[in-house]
Amino acid sequence: MSHPLLVWLVGGVLLVGAGFVTALLPRWRAREREHRTAWSAARAAIDSATVSRDAAVTRVPAAERLLVRAESIAAGRGGTAAARAAAKHAREADRLWRTHQ
């Protein structure tokens, strides 16, 4: 830091860098968290639906199709939207099997 000009340059670069990091890092973290949350919910819904299927007294082909679809989506490891779709199908299947208990 012998030259004041260096202070301006380095300081300016640091300011801009800090601005980008503080703006982007929380956003990136939130997206990551949302992604994991969605998959957590999807897995819970699929597991729950599996239990309901095992407990069901009759076969419900519609529910089975829905669950297969949910599991295939989950096997593909997609993004947040895929996780939501999988959770939706699994819940629907779960509801169908519960009505046939």
Binding site: S40, R43, A44, D47, S48, V51, S52, A55
Partner: peptide, 18 residues
Amino acid sequence: SDPALTRGIVKLQAARAA
């Protein structure tokens, strides 16, 4: 009561993992 309890345990496991 078994299916409901099992589903409850599955949800609890998911909650613990989360």
